[in-house]
Design a protein around this nucleic acid. Sequence first.
DNA 1: TGCACAAATATCGTATACAATATATCATTG
DNA 2: CAATGATATATTGTATACGATATTTGTGCA
Lengths: 222, 222
Amino acid sequence: MPSRSDLVVAGLQRAILEHKIAPGTKLSEDEVGEIFGVSRTIVRSALQALAHLQLVTIEKNRGAFIASPTPKEAHEVFEARGLIEPRVAAMAARRMSDQSLEALRAHIEEEHAAMHAGDKGQALALSGGFHLKIADIAGHDVFTGFIHALISRSSLIIALYWRRADTTCESHSHHALMKAFERRDAAAAEEIMRSHIVDLHSGLDLSNRKNAPLSLADALRP
Amino acid sequence: MPSRSDLVVAGLQRAILEHKIAPGTKLSEDEVGEIFGVSRTIVRSALQALAHLQLVTIEKNRGAFIASPTPKEAHEVFEARGLIEPRVAAMAARRMSDQSLEALRAHIEEEHAAMHAGDKGQALALSGGFHLKIADIAGHDVFTGFIHALISRSSLIIALYWRRADTTCESHSHHALMKAFERRDAAAAEEIMRSHIVDLHSGLDLSNRKNAPLSLADALRP
DNA sequence: TGCACAAATATCGTATACAATATATCATTG
DNA sequence: CAATGATATATTGTATACGATATTTGTGCA
């Protein structure tokens, strides 16, 4: 049974992951509460949770803002992913069931569809979701928790520093990973994941920060 | 300027790290609020923060309890530390300044003193602090954050599953790490850290859980 | 005595009221 | 007109009140 603040967390997180709210945007407690129909008590709880994931930063007596990762943070996040995710991919390969394999295939289909539909935001969110599903399959809750936080932050980082317009390399790497999973080849999965994340990391231009603020109410309207 | 809930978080965390509150202990909001002289609003915020660190579990309509890691969680925590901390130790060795080296030496002195004083709880907390200081020196905020959470949880795990009475192996490994740091030998630091954590991991007996509940008010009285 | 069920109590979940702080507005002055 | 300062407004920080849920206690009955 999801608590009411979890719903707010999920709603905001989704908007952030799909790039509907830009980094730096202020999240006024009253405004968020109005949109979700809850009191400030709930909103505050949700904002604290998001702050813990480092998706928002809370400044005392000033309020909460969508986080705006620095180049250093961006680098660190992908460095961390580069250490953890290959290991987790190998674990997932060893534990891969036919059922999980099928779920991953379905997920890739969704990615493909969103891409063709031209919905960049959703395509990006789904691409992160693929990595998360792999972590779930690995069944290592500690690593999964870390990866969850890292992927969320990655979405913000990509909003600020991504240099290319497309995300086709994603699709290619994800297919390669599928091949390795089908063979239950842990070593291959580990290596493909490593190079995939290096790819993502090198797709960032940490010297050029983009800006694209947006109205909060618009972004959250379902 | 630390907010009031941070003070509650720090107070509870310290008590947990020093094994003054046993896993499973209930943290009543009223009781904690009474002890720290704050309202339930603040306590709730603090408990949520501790829940994010997984030092506390919150059960809906039942309250907050000191977390009681399962054997699986215990295994995963040390597996994660085994992956991350060696890498961080290497980074720290590369960035080690004379000043940082001195700080680490001083820290080891403290450990030594606490051990001689027979204060098991504080010795354990300090031993975790040594690992944290290394992470700080490495200057990688993402890894430091992870390690912070992992070390906190390790303290709970040790409370439940530690098989030996002493912690002398800690002291030995920490000295060996210092030697590597003094030589700025990243490879050695990495390897020593790896085997140190394997040592810790193997010091657990995951089939035997200890029990040692304690009064809450006593534990928190400064 | 032991069990089942009901009342009473305690604790948590949420909303709201008030205080503290920051931000915005606007007049004043050089 | 720009800069500065005072007032007004808006927003966050905290406490508290009230309703909802769980736990405990107590009572009746087999």
